[in-house]
Design a protein around this nucleic acid. Structure first.
Lengths: 197, 197
DNA sequence: TCATTTCTGTAGTGTTCGCTAAATAATGTC
DNA sequence: GACATTATTTAGCGAACACTACAGAAATGA
């Protein structure tokens, strides 16, 4: 992270962190194309020049908000303990987060930038990479479980990882469609029945 | 369906069905907000007044294209035979369709209009209803399977239906991210292991 | 005090958005 | 051929888009 050393000049009249949080929620709920700069002005209480002075452009504002989402609202796979419990916790925690009160429903990464105009195609690469890395993380965890003997040899870990990733992505869609926390947790529980025996 | 009885006046210079197909593909790939009328002009070869004369507005054009997608590219649950086979075929057919060559990847309904600006929120109601009806269809099929004794009493059919719906929705996301047909079919196969025993 | 630096608000920039009025072209009917 | 009807083309509408030049405001350093 780069340090800012203003000390001179007029100080910021806003808390950059709080502003970024409001921006994140706006993009989370309405997506990149669905969020206009006017929307961001309304959400933050700032005028466009302040936003641009602090962040640069709508695109870097989006990417910054996306990183903030990942670090503050992302669900991570616990690296220790049995893989089965880790995956189960992972799914159930996602169910909780996707239906958390006071936040937009669903996952900002799972359903980010799936359909964009050709002019903004570059926006989608970072969210797509995040999804890809999430999938890779799950697969690696499962592969370790095979190595450790927790999962049988010959388990199709790539397919299983894709399945749990798809469950996350589908839960995000259903959360947006109004599924409750109870609905999503039951979904997660049902998904765990796909664990190999 | 209303009948058109032109017979007078200048005839259409285009095949309405082919134009609607091009429109559907554009919306399918780029979504509602990502597809501008200029995009539709380029995709169809028509000028805006012809599009508006034939269909009315961008919004009804989208809804019409969505209905066309559902009827021509939608996957339906086979109503006869064992529920388990029906669901398995359903998932595998979706895997095939979402990765079909010559068509946009993913499902136009699963990932439609998840994030929109507040001004266009009305666009999302029809796709959301389609997803809801799809979920209800799966659940009813599973409920019948319980009644018939194919599934054990006490099966959480709602959760199981949500799970298979989530698998579809997740496959759509992963297809957009570049998953191959083989990837998706393996995912579908892994999902079927969640079938109660 | 005064100059310098930085931020904020006003008021735009040019571009693209969805959409359409008006003129022209192509058909059927008389 | 004249006329009514419908389709296409040209040209452009007002609004919203992302973004910014500029002037004034608020801080520090000399």
């Amino acid at each position: 992270m780069e340090m800012r050393k203003p000390s001179r000049g007029r100080p910021r009249s806003f808390d950059e962190d709080a502003v970024l949080d409001a921006v994140m929620r706006a993009f989370w709920e309405h997506g990149y194309e669905g969020t206009s700069v006017a929307t961001l002005e309304a959400a933050t209480g700032l005028k466009a020049p302040s936003l641009y002075g602090a962040f640069g452009s709508k695109e870097v504002l989006y990417q910054t908000a996306l990183e903030r989402y990942a670090s503050e609202h992302g669900t991570v796979l616990r690296p220790d303990g049995p893989a089965r419990e880790a995956i189960s916790e992972f799914l159930h925690e996602a169910a909780d987060r996707f239906s958390e009160n006071g936040l937009p429903p669903g996952c900002m990464v799972s359903t980010a930038a799936l359909t964009l105009g050709t002019a903004q195609r570059g926006i989608a690469t970072r969210p797509a990479r995040m999804r890809s890395e999430s999938l890779a993380g799950i697969e690696q965890r499962l592969q370790t479980a095979v190595t450790d003997g927790e999962l049988p040899q010959g388990t199709d870990v790539a397919a299983l990882a894709r399945l749990f990733g798809a469950v996350i992505q589908g839960m995000s869609v259903q959360a947006i469609d109004g599924a409750t926390r109870t609905d999503l947790r039951a979904l997660a529980t049902a998904a765990m029945d796909a664990w190999p025996r």
